[in-house]
Design a protein around this nucleic acid. Sequence first.
DNA 1: GCACTCAGATGACACTGTCAACTGTAGGAT
DNA 2: ATCCTACAGTTGACAGTGTCATCTGAGTGC
Lengths: 208, 208
Amino acid sequence: MVTRAESAAATRRALLDAAAELLDLGGPEAVTLREVGAKAGVTRGAPYRHFADKDSLLTAIAAECWEDIGDQVHAVRLDETLPAAKKLRAALQVLVGIGREQPHLYQMLFRWNGKRLNQLERLHRQVCGPEGDPEAADRGAARFQDEFLAIVASVVGEQDAQHYGALLLTSAHGIAGMEHSGHLGADKWHTTADALVDTLVRMVSAAP
Amino acid sequence: MVTRAESAAATRRALLDAAAELLDLGGPEAVTLREVGAKAGVTRGAPYRHFADKDSLLTAIAAECWEDIGDQVHAVRLDETLPAAKKLRAALQVLVGIGREQPHLYQMLFRWNGKRLNQLERLHRQVCGPEGDPEAADRGAARFQDEFLAIVASVVGEQDAQHYGALLLTSAHGIAGMEHSGHLGADKWHTTADALVDTLVRMVSAAP
DNA sequence: GCACTCAGATGACACTGTCAACTGTAGGAT
DNA sequence: ATCCTACAGTTGACAGTGTCATCTGAGTGC
């Protein structure tokens, strides 16, 4: 026999998995609460017992992805076999790789946190309804940032880590985005995302 | 008296303007055909006489923006008072500036051309319905690319123009995107979008 | 003058997110 | 053992949405 808490947790997981699959296949528009419920074996209203709204569900997926990214970059940072520059390259490739293989998921990572709740609404949710935990994604992103910054610092020094870290991250983000949107076609620019990342790392490594 | 063609052209313009305003205020979700029609003084069905669907309307807006960007970069390229590196910076700032001041419009520029019609569907549209001209945006982007590449070539030479052009463009795109999504907050990275663009130009100008 | 074309209006349909009200059961209190 | 409560999940409903088939009426070529 399963306790009620276990059952609820299982449903929540099933909802997340179903939503992630739909997101992967057809983007955010394809994630309908009805189909998410059907895939998870419940009905359309059930998700509202676990997430405040559709947006919170997508944010929760992004949060899990951020956590995963944090783990990967953490592993890269601790990998003793890699020289610093290679670590930098590997860390950036984590992002670009997700952008390439799960573009819709990637978009969720960097989207404007749609209904950024003002303090009043957040309080209301905290009292009355299920907490979407909109901060979870931010915390995951911050974890990644810390890991990433440590790697950057090992290449350019603590002093310039913030600036060059931001430069590398935004650039990788742009590479991922334009690769996805088709504006970085090899026939258009005669280069590839990977080559751009390499150049980026090389230039920053040699930066004054 | 107005001819029918004039009236239709005026309506089309009104639709584009109304949609652009709604897009600016509330993003793509806020652009509803009903409200676009209302703002333009027609009803919800009217837009379908000018655009195949909502997506085509948004694409048309993006196309106009690309054209505008092309003009601006063209002017920058011809400006004799600017040294090459400053031209590069100015060209990139055109993009970053739009990302800052009209973020929703900016997103339309680089989105995956949603319903990228396969050849069959495109033929069908060509025969039966109004042409959304999904290529217009691509043409506008290509125009910008040519202008931009010429400026890049004047800095790094013809040989490396494609590669470094792509690097600069993707990076600027990432800067604009992360600034918009709030992931480039000054409190997080202790730097600004403008500073990043400057560093980018400096590094590329000094590149081997 | 007349048939025709086509911009626009209108009714309808399927689908969406969301919520109020309801149901049934797990799990603690008596 | 019995009652009670909390709460996961269901169901019905509603307001919007994009989209299409159909209709209307005025400009236009003959």
